[in-house]
Amino acid sequence: MREVEFHWNVLIVIYLFTAGVSAGAFVISGLATYLGGAKYKRISRIGAMIAPCPLIFGLGMLVFDLTKPLQFWWLFLTVQWTSPMSIGSWLLTFFSLLSIIYFLLWIPRPWRDLLRVPHRWGEIFSPKRWQSLSRRDVGIARRVIAAIGFPVGLGVGMYTGVLLGAIPARPLWNTPMVAQLFLFSAMSTGVATVLLIAALVRDKSDADHLHHERHFLVSVDAVLIVFEIFIIIPFFLHQALNTWSSAESVNLIMGGPYTLAFWVGVILLGLLVPLAIEGFELYPVVWREAAVKYSRLWGGVSAALVLVGGFLLRYIFVYAGQVSHFLPLLER
């Protein structure tokens, strides 16, 4: 067997992870805005404040990975319909813009009032007459941006998996399940980031309020984790019972060099332990109609584990995928 060269390295892993966190944070913030309004206001704000940050960092990594970082704008001179990367670049640009606008709309007062916009067409070219947004306008704008950004955010989450899955030469990636897995994992890491920040930030809200937002976030994350598990199980069955190259590719995780990281890091610490903690938190709600049994310590631990698992999942897929081959790796 010849040595495999890893042309995509940890920079790509960071980018796939951060894009997922941003997409997840935006989507959960938009969802909270529509489903809860004032009830989930704190979550909506935290999600909106987070959304653009990891993505901008990740895009920096992505550009830095190019052999010609300064020529990254070549991507935006064309649309290549058969290239997931081309479509993804446009999607990410659109999403970055939306998440930045959304971020600005969620800045708390009085800082938000520094944001001045034209209110009439005639004012566009005379910035001196621009005014800050009223409470009502901000509410409408948030909902509009959330509605537009919702499908775009889901698209970004899915795209990170399609990018890998659309390559027949890499059997570990070449299944639609990777896109599903990455999408649900992206949403889960986004929710976990909101949970983590919510656990770290001192909250002045009353107990009822906190119960509602914890119930919402923890339930959504638990459902997403269950989805991920139900994707991983058929993924392994299908790959292992598939052609030689597919079976060979899962051997990398079933006994090969990535086994421990995957089963302990991703499955146990990244999915099962957080699910158990979340189950424990939700148990009183389901069985006794009582408040969520939430401690900031355990809530923070489970959220942090989801993030570690999400990062490892991408790390293992990016690296193991590059080892997987359709043709035998003959000595050269």
Partner: peptide
């Protein structure tokens, strides 16, 4: 000149 070095093609080539 047009290649920015994203290396996606390297991943996509089944013949390396």
């Amino acid at each position: 000149d047009k290649c920015i070095g994203c290396k996606y093609c390297i991943q996509a080539c089944p013949y390396d």
